[in-house]
Design a binder for these strands. Structure first.
Lengths: 214, 214
DNA sequence: GACTGTGAAGCCATTCACAGCT
DNA sequence: AGCTGTGAATGGCTTCACAGTC
């Protein structure tokens, strides 16, 4: 078996293709070409083919891809053949919103525990989940065999909570805190930094206006 | 004036440096080296220097960078010398959370209007803002000279709302809908796709486990 | 001695262009 | 004729390594 190194950008796009294919399947489309996928998600056809080719030959020359097959393959590749249980720490505004976020459930992610150390939040109900103290997290993680954690806490405590998660067996963390967290090599972290995204926009708006760099 | 093309990754990091420098300034640190910044945000020192060098010579050889100066420069570059007014469409869970999100205000983004077409949401108060019908958006955008819009609506209506935003004068959109939106070239769009980020994690978890690609 | 700024090298991702299949 | 799969070419970002400065 060869030692493939797959670009992260490819995985990101694969995830987008996958959701686009779900839509196509719902609409009853049987066959789809790289060009049609490309158009639907806003990339080049060559990019679509190259991305898919990392994982196998899923298409038929002269025809295209079978929507159902390709959807199944992309889901399998992304590790979405089964649902995933997730814990969330931080029952503030963002955390509460994420518990209710439909996009997660639609793709097979179920939040099975919400934790916070703020006494005013513990005991609160979010959907059908009661907010628990962080002490209770290791038990839930073990019981439900959870490997993914979402961090929606203030930057100050992000590292501390991340450490607790890792100790309890979490292997992948989605971090919303605007702060780099340090974890062992075998733990995956991805950051979502909301302000950074807005700042890319302001930078570009200013570039357009000033002509400074053109 | 030369035709510089600055990598988006550089802008992303610049935004992270900027926030790290704020922290350093608050702690009373006067001077900082590329190595210290690098360590604080998790990149290489050469990367930090290269990124900054796109915009000028801010440091002193043998010494490092003056925290206050560099912070001011990064803010200026990112277009954060003044505050930005922002409108938000979609007063669901995510939208409501974003209105209360501190990270935006801390970096100078003020949400000045929240809109939704769901009658059960119109009239609701989020912080001190009343949710208005989308009809009212163009007026607010014009009155308050808003150029940035946040899209926190279901995928189905994302394109339609985006069109309304653009027609009303919005020049940059932060899109949380899991759907590519099409806008004129002069309008900037950045997407935040929460499920995609989780799916990168599941992909990597599966890679670790299966050894399939190693 | 320490640290920045930068050309050059190395590396990685995207695009091109076409052979191969249906 | 149409579309995939892919080696080669291109383009772009990151790392290296060191000259320049304090």
């Amino acid at each position: 078996m060869k030692a493939f190194k797959i670009p992260e950008a490819t995985i990101v796009r694969l995830s987008v293709y996958s959701r686009f294919l779900e839509l196509a399947e719902k609409r009853g489309i049987i066959t789809i070409s790289s060009g049609e996928i490309a158009e639907g998600v806003g990339v080049s056809p060559a990019q679509v083919r190259k991305d898919l080719a990392y994982f196998g030959e899923f298409g038929t020359r002269g025809v295209g891809y079978n929507v159902k097959d390709l959807l199944r393959h992309t889901m399998k590749i992304l590790g979405l053949s089964h649902d995933w249980s997730v814990v969330l720490v931080g029952a503030g505004n963002l955390g509460s919103a994420l518990v209710s976020y439909r996009g997660f459930r639609e793709r097979g992610f179920t939040i099975v525990g919400v934790f916070d150390n703020d006494l005013t939040k513990i005991g609160k109900k979010l959907l059908d989940l009661e907010v628990l103290a962080i002490d209770a997290m290791p038990r839930i993680i073990a019981e439900k065999n959870v490997r993914i954690g979402i961090l929606a806490v203030p930057a100050k405590v992000a590292q501390e909570v991340a450490d607790t998660m890792v100790k309890a067996g979490i292997r992948a963390i989605l971090n919303f805190a605007p702060k780099a967290i340090v974890v062992p090599d075998e733990v995956e972290v991805r950051n979502i930094d909301l302000s950074v995204k807005l700042e890319i926009l302001t930078f570009n708006l200013c570039m357009q206006d000033t002509d400074f760099f053109r």
